[in-house]
Design a binder for these strands. Structure first.
Lengths: 250, 250
DNA sequence: TCTTTTAGTTGATCTGGATCAAAACCTGAT
DNA sequence: ATCAGGTTTTGATCCAGATCAACTAAAAGA
């Protein structure tokens, strides 16, 4: 256990060291502000790195929850599979995002996490995270923000699924990808999708044919170019207008 | 601040006192296990009770986030209103449920919370909750579970909105109400809805006419009786079969 | 390399739910 | 009680997206 002096001070995030043990911390996307000593403590929380190859499971629905996972590199989807075999994608996850939050409630994973390309994650044993959270209030607070952000994100999807039409949904989806890639330093107008039309459809509540048609329509209108999985956005503004409303987040 | 001895002990929840200051704690649905001293501490967290009359706002989208609210009695909805005026209901909330979790991320409320009948809530200043959480690990852990449960619930709705058809959605909705009422000691087959067809529709991603027709259909099939807002479920089993799949939670 | 498999596009048709419209019903206010 | 508002039901029509089907293109294996 730690002296009280550890609790709550604010330093610059740039002080985060770059070694591997702390890599997951940045992925935990901690613009929290911690000093070196605190980082020392946090380092404890970091479990092993784990590689998951394309098509592999990071975890499966129904298995015991032990850890959250911060995506270090790669791209994953989470999906729930229903009795009848059909599966619904609940999210796509890229570098820096945290997986497994849904499992805290029951201590069982409620969905499958599957890598859509070779990926690397940092395991964050949840019990450790909680222990350290109670020592470093800013970490705890930040963790609460992350969970809350997930709720807000889900509400955005609910809005999309509840009210929008196919083209709006796709515009939303593309702009969401674009923004998240931009944040990570990639082009916001030029990127490769990692998922199939079917997976996009599953996420957006559409059939793959409808997704395909919506792509084609946007291309005819010269808003985007689609070449298989490669997307080029020609007119971000117009794409945004197509999105209509809706607060698409994360 | 508190002596370390406070941290993590397990007592029986029956020890929770029944005074008003602690009322919100049970609403926070804390099957956590706390001793009297700990309850003393927790009492601190409880803010004022607040009454919201039918049609009134508990909070509005865009306003500053300060507190969570535990529903003490009554019934509320949360909804996001889009630019174009149309609003989407993101949830219905009854006794014991916690509102405002979405606001932690941005420190602004992302939706409106409106009472559908005269209601009473306990205000839980979030900063205080966090402070005490770091002293009482079991409280922190339970709070994490509550947030996680909200995420799971939202995934359930996404599943519903993404793939199910009108009748399945309504069956889901009714069974969800039924279960939540049963938990609170009310009849699971005989209850009054507090919301309009339009609000149900908004929540389920359907138009009010479709909701009405789905009600009528279930009634024709003698699965339920509908008399205005009063619902009687005649055949729970058959209703469950109609629901198909989907993990309807909370 | 060629072959098989999987993913994506595009067309034709069908249908569940949206939309439009009207009537019946409740609720609350005067 | 009566009236005005909102809510619900039900019918008729329409259309966005599902479904079915055929074909093309790109990976993955041999």
């Amino acid at each position: 256990m730690l002296p009280e002096s550890f609790v709550a001070t604010n330093f610059d995030v740039a002080q985060l060291r770059t070694g591997c043990a702390t890599c997951s911390l940045r992925e935990l996307c901690l613009p929290v502000g911690l000093n070196d000593q605190e980082i020392e403590v946090l380092t404890e929380v970091t479990g092993h790195k784990r590689k998951v190859q394309r098509g592999g499971y990071l975890y499966r629905a129904g298995t015991k929850f032990q850890s959250l996972y911060a995506v270090k590199s790669g791209f994953l989807k989470t999906c729930i599979l229903e009795e009848d075999g059909r599966q619904q994608v609940t999210g796509f996850h890229m570098t820096g995002e945290l997986l497994g939050l849904d499992a805290i409630s029951t201590e069982l994973h409620t969905c499958d996490a599957i890598a859509l390309e070779d990926s690397e994650v940092c395991e964050i044993p949840f019990a450790k995270l909680e222990k350290i959270s109670s020592i470093i209030p800013s970490l705890m607070h930040h963790f609460h923000k992350i969970m809350s952000r997930e709720i807000v994100r889900d509400h955005g999807v609910m809005l999309l699924l509840g009210g929008m039409k196919a083209e709006e949904r796709l515009a939303n989806f593309l702009l969401n990808m674009s923004r998240r890639l931009a944040i990570r330093g990639y082009s916001e107008t030029n990127f490769n999708l990692r998922m199939t039309r079917e997976e996009i459809g599953s996420y957006l509540g559409l059939k793959l044919e409808t997704v395909s048609r919506a792509f084609s329509k946007l291309q005819e209108e010269a808003v985007i170019s689609v070449k298989n999985k490669h997307i080029q956005i020609h007119d971000l503004q117009r794409l945004k207008e197509k999105m209509g409303n809706s607060s698409c987040t994360t």
